[in-house]
Design a protein around this nucleic acid. Structure first.
Lengths: 150, 150
DNA sequence: ACAAGTGTAACTAGTCTTGTTACAGACCTA
DNA sequence: TAGGTCTGTAACAAGACTAGTTACACTTGT
């Protein structure tokens, strides 16, 4: 599947902003380093997050981005929807001239059903906050003993 | 999203096979007409369904495909999984040489969380049988008065 | 034997994602 | 007010994937 990693990158980005909250703004360059990609890619994603009021940006020197709310108040569904990637599954529409009347009727039903499934996925994402993700990361860091290594 | 319509096509195809169950085998050509695509595209999808024992194929003249079980016993999850499209969301792995230790730890957590969300979606799909979809189609056909038109 | 089907390879065209470079505009600070 | 930092965004290239086609070998019923 030509599935994309934008959601993963967006979550990672938001996580960085949450972790760096005390340090004020974080530049796209810094995030790009941690996420291991280009700063433009990050700015594109941050643009989507800004559009949906999850992140705010300060332009110019000393600028960068930061979360508008606490990590407890941001769910993965917020991030998912902010990316505006459209439906997970495409259901090509058949034109009304199509010979098979059954086919014309089946499509909207399939679209409906798949949309319900996607809604379930979003509901699940809505139950997970950015804080939850960070907590899991912290737990894992302790488990793997990375704290000692540092 | 470069999301693909394979799932929709596969469901449509399976629905056709279910509807035509009494008529015996259905050729890929016939299905392609109804679905409005090429017969090779259909055969590719049917290949996946055969691999997962949802469909059986008879070669040669008079051949074609048919369901191996009743529509009540086939869920959309069966079809979804048969397509073997891999994870819905990609989470690129960072190599261990990556400078940011946090980043290395965050990724698997994100992958875990997104996998849980996808599992929820599959659970939803598992609750919908092919028979359910066909029932909905029938209902809609009556609602829109298509029975009269014919 | 022949016609009707399937399986599969190969190729094309179109689209999407990611990575990059480039540059204008915003903004802090000296 | 000048210069260095940032962001936003356009433009382009590379690579991957989908969908559509053609072509052809192989299977099988009549």
């Amino acid at each position: 599947m030509a599935s994309n990693s934008r959601l993963a990158i967006a979550i990672h980005t938001a996580g960085m902003l949450a972790a760096m909250a005390e340090s004020g703004c974080v530049t796209s360059e810094k995030i790009a380093e941690s996420v291991s990609t280009n700063s433009v890619v990050i700015r594109r994603i941050i643009g989507s997050l800004v559009k949906h009021d999850l992140v705010e940006v300060r332009m110019g020197a000393g600028g960068g981005s930061s979360l508008t709310r606490s990590p407890e108040e941001i769910t993965l569904a917020d991030i998912y929807l902010a990316l505006e990637e459209g439906s997970l599954f495409q259901v090509p529409v058949l034109d009304q001239e199509h010979e098979c009347k059954m086919g014309i009727t089946v499509r909207p039903v399939i679209a409906e059903v798949l949309q319900e499934a996607e809604d379930d996925l979003i509901k699940k994402l809505r139950s997970i906050t950015l804080a939850d993700v960070m907590k899991r990361v912290r737990t894992r860091l302790i488990e793997t003993g990375c704290f000692e290594e540092k």
